[in-house]
Amino acid sequence: MSRATVAPGTSAGHDTWTRALRERIERTVPPGQALPDRQPVYVASWIYVFGVATLAALFVVVVTGGLLALGGFEWWHVSSLGRFVNSLHLWSVEIFFAAMVIHLWGKFWMAAWRGGRALTWMTGVVAFLASIGTAFTGYLTQTNFDSQWISTQAKDGLNAVGIGAWFNVLNPGQMLLWHVVLLPFAVGLIAVLHIVLVRRHGVVPPIEADGED
């Protein structure tokens, strides 16, 4: 793709898409800023652990969900191993949400959207919403009494605003695909975006130390 006349390393403008992409990435998160081993002095609180804990829990959720998928979606009703894997998945989700909610409140009280970080906050909220949707569709695909009840209850809210016409909570096949493909993909993508933004901006300085007052 690159022209042979240009020696490696010399600049010839953005004459390849590859080079343009590389420079775009380097501008977004400069090398060394992606995984630095030093942080500003004020990054010294337990609250910072919860963002990372949320990410770690998301990993566990995805891995246990993958294990649960191995046996198909009714496996866990008939196998004690399947039941245990289901329990792992359930509890990792509860931990994921607990960590995320603490993270959310932490960032609120730190007003962590200051200094051009509004998009970090907004991607965080979207990650939260997508996670709620993912958990909800998970409850709908349990194929047990709980999913019978939750789906027949939830349909009214979704139907009342017209969403139910396309997103049929009474159809566990459709819900399963949202639960295991579309929504996890969305959560993962937004989480990546969110963390790239965090690294790009650096950790927000303390209130009153940011020179804004």
Partner: peptide, 17 residues
């Protein structure tokens, strides 16, 4: 306004965390 890069730093091991 002052931002993250202009503060003193401390060691912090993200990967270990």
């Amino acid at each position: 306004p002052r931002d993250a890069h202009s503060f003193p730093t401390r060691r912090y091991d993200l990967v270990k965390e």
